[in-house]
Amino acid sequence: MKIILNNSEVSMAGESFSVRELLALMNFTFPMIVVKINGRLVRKEDYERVFVGDGDNVEAIHLISGG
């Protein structure tokens, strides 16, 4: 499948991935991440039950401690 991740096209072997799986595959390593799929925020508690499929537009940004 192909998705758009942070404005870049990414090809992946597989039909769909949970948000949790996708973040691990894409090396998002910090514990807090903002994730939007097609413009909608995915809550952290929903990372296992929301799935990403072909054509989805995924935006993911690390939230880093410090303020």
């Binding site: 514990p31 807090m32 991440i33 809550r43 952290k44 939230l63 401690s65 303020g67």
Partner: peptide, 17 residues
């Protein structure tokens, strides 16, 4: 959002969304 902790940053983003 001007918190120190990352979990608080996510909290306010989720609440506001």
């Amino acid at each position: 959002e001007a918190f120190d902790r990352a979990d608080m940053k996510l909290m306010i983003i989720e609440t506001a969304s």
